[in-house]
Each structure stands twice: as C-alpha cells, then as structure tokens.
Amino acid sequence: MKATLRRSTGALLASSLLLTIGRGATLPFMTIYLTRKYAMTVDTIGYAMTIALTIGVIFSLGFGILADKFDKKRYMLLAIAAFIAGFIAIPLVNSVTLVVLFFALINCSYSVFATVLKAWFSDALSSTEKARIFSLNYTILNIGWTVGPPLGTLLVMYSINLPFLLAAICAALPLVFIQRYVQRIVVADKENSPAAWDPTVLLHDKALMWFTCSGLLASFVGGSFASCISQYVLAIADSEFAEKVVAVILPVNAVIVVTLQYAVGRRLTASNLRPLMTFGTVCFVLGLLGFMYSGSNLIYWGLAAAVFTLGEVIYAPGEYMLIDNIAPPGMKASYFSAQALGWLGAAMNPMLTGQILTHLPSASLFMIMIAAIVMAWFLIQKGMRASRRKEIASL
C-alpha cells in the first residue's frame, strides 16, 4: 500500500472510531434524555427512537446514491458537518418533534458517512486489501461502542447535555483528519472504466435485491442483540438478573469482536465466502439455541454469546464483500446505500421483540430469529447464483 493511501486509510479509520465513540456516548442515553426533559413514557420513547432510526436509514439511501455523482471526500465532510449540527441542536431546542428530527439527521449523516467510507475503500483498495480493511473498520466500530457508553455514563452524572457536547467534539476532529490527509479518488483511473451513473440499475439487479433482503433479516438477528436479550430476560426473570446477563454478554461480545474480527475478516475471499457465511450462520443458530436454554446460568449465557459473536465477526465483513463483488465501478456508494436498507431490521428489532414477547411464548423469540438467519443464508445463496449468472451473461 502506498504511503498516501496508507495515510488516507488511517485518517478514515480514525474518523470512523471518533464518530462511533460520539454516537456510542449518546445513543444509549437518549431514552434517559427524553424521560428527564420531556417526561415521555417508555412505549412512546420506543416509537420515537424507531421513527428516528427508520427516517435516518431511508433518507441515507437517497443521499448515499447521490454520493456517486460527487467527490466522496467532500461528501464525507458534509455528512460529518450535519452530524455535528444535530448534536449541537438537540440540547438547544425545546420540542420533542425537533429532537426526533435532529436525531434522525444524526443517524442519516452517520449512515451516509459509513456508506461513502466503504465506497471509498472499495474504489481505492485492491481486492486483497478490502477484506482486511473492512474487518479492521468493523473492529474499530466495536471499540468505539465499547468506549463510548462508559464515557456517556460518566458525563451524564454531571449533566444530561454533556454527552452531546462530547459527540460534537469527537466529530470535529475527523473534519481536520479528512481534509488534510485523505486523498481524492478518481474511479476512472482504475483499470475498469466506470459504469454510467444510473440509479435504476439498483432496481434491476437481482443479486443486490437478495443480498439486501438477507441483510435485513441478519440485522434483525444480530444488529440489536444486546437490547433484544435484555428484553427477553426481563420477560422471563427480572431487571436485576437482566443487568447481570447484559454485564456478561456485552464484554464477551466486545472481546471476541476486537480480538478475532481482524484475523477472521482478512481471510475472507470471493472463493471462500460461501463456506464461511455458512459457518457463520451455524454459529448464529447455535448461539440462539444457547440463549434459549441458558436459563439462570450466567456461564451458559457467556458461552452462547461467544458462539453467537463468531457468526457476527464473519457476517460483518462478509456482507460488505458480497456487495463489493457485484457493484460496478462508479456505483459503489449506490450499492452500499442499498445494502444499508438492511439496517431497518435492527431498527425494528426492539419493537418486534416486544410484540413477540407480549403475544407469544418467550422461547419463540429465538425460534423466530433462527428461522430469520437461516432464511438470510438462503437468500445469500440465491444472490450468489444470480451474481454468477450475471457474470456469465456479460461475457
């Protein structure tokens, strides 16, 4: 890797870490903020959070697709500026509606940054470097989520507004890093001439459709698993035991992701993607079965979380590689934006989990999730076959 490319990659990874720390320091405390300042009930807060997350994902699709028409470096700077504006505005307004809209802006701008970041890596890096950097970025995201919430906990003891200030400060540094150290990427300089920018291509790409639907189901299973587990334990036990379970599974998840994500992800290639995604699916299924039968044994909860996380460390870079393999040059951001629609599954998880636990036996939650991740694997196979047919037809 050239020195300029290495410096650009380092600056972008550092920016990804800082933005995630800021988001991690605020997102877990939004419920507390809405309760203290606006006296909202728990169910109302749940709807407000789901609305904000959903709006953010949907709008990020449009803005992410447009990123292919503009300089990606400048686009990331604009997304970060919007990210900062949202965090500055929330403590200053005195309206629940405005808070939800600014929170949606934060989620939209963060999603746009993450999408364009992946597109930049996809355009700039060689095929052997992409899996390694995608995995490294996912490891960094988990470090950010490990560091952010404790910082938010510390700051909220002094003022409910301080986490928002921390997020704005953390996001200000990436503005400097990206402006000074990140080089502009011209796709036309690559060996393959870029495809004409045409968003309608997304609607006709069957492989993309299958991979996006797979991502929707996979993010429902793995995207919000900590909150899902806490809701489940609250349904079968009490808040005291739920705190113990979360205190076990979160560190296990963080340790395994940080230690194994890079080592596993860098070995993903187009040739071994199918068997590894199959192995990841098996790990998800075994982990969910472990959760279902863990009962009051915290050791079993920890072991189940470890197996479940093995599926996560394979799926995270694997889904990026699936999209990168089918996205034509000049349309990378558009394809990654479409993939980001899959995060609607994670956004809907708390609400759907609550409905399942309210109207069905508690154990049925994990059976539904097992069915969802198996279906996600099946859709990946269909997407791979569609991609192979497309390649053959283009020869």
Rank of each mutant, 00 (worst) to 15 (best):
V201D: 02
L117Q: 15
N137D: 12
E319C: 14
S214L: 11
I326M: 08
V255R: 07
A119C: 10
F113G: 07
I133E: 03
F29G: 09
I370D: 02
K72E: 07
I21M: 12
G86N: 06
L141W: 05
A393V: 10
H204M: 06
I373K: 00
A263V: 15
A3K: 12
L18P: 04
I380N: 09
P28M: 14
Q355A: 15
L101N: 04
A39H: 13
L175I: 13
V313T: 12
A79P: 00
V258C: 05
S296I: 05
L260A: 11
L162E: 10
I392Q: 14
S239V: 13
I45H: 10
S214M: 10
P199G: 01
N142L: 08
I236C: 04
R74Q: 12
I55L: 15
A305S: 15
F29T: 10
S109A: 15
A85D: 08
L303R: 11
K130T: 05
F29V: 12
A338E: 01
P251G: 09
S16G: 15
Y300K: 11
L216P: 01
L151K: 02
G10R: 12
Y47E: 13
F177D: 00
R74V: 11
A39C: 02
I80W: 04
I106Y: 01
I45M: 11
H204Y: 12
L273S: 02
Q183P: 00
P329C: 06
Y315D: 09
F103K: 07
T35M: 15
C213S: 10
K206F: 04
P328Q: 07
L136M: 10
L298F: 03
L18H: 08
F70I: 13
L303V: 15
M331G: 09
Q355H: 10
L166R: 07
S296E: 09
F177Y: 07
T26S: 15
I380H: 06
A363E: 09
A48Q: 14
L77V: 08
V182F: 01
V245A: 09
I323L: 15
D198F: 00
G148C: 13
P350M: 10
L203N: 06
N192R: 12
R7Q: 13
V258R: 08
K130D: 04
A82D: 02
V42C: 00
I143M: 12
E243R: 13
Y300W: 13
A371H: 03
D123V: 00
S362R: 03
G148S: 09
V99W: 06
K332G: 00
A237M: 01
I80G: 04
G318W: 12
L216M: 07
L288Q: 09
L13Q: 04
I65M: 11
N349I: 01
K244Q: 14
V246K: 09
Q231S: 14
I356C: 08
A81S: 13
T281L: 00
L141A: 01
A25S: 15
D43I: 11
P194T: 07
V221Y: 03
I88N: 02
K390W: 05
G86Q: 05
L12P: 10
P275E: 07
A79S: 13
I185G: 01
G383V: 07
V248G: 01
P163A: 13
V257Q: 02
A333C: 11
Y33R: 11
W343M: 05
S230W: 03
M348T: 02
T259P: 00
L13W: 04
L268C: 03
G56I: 02
M331D: 06
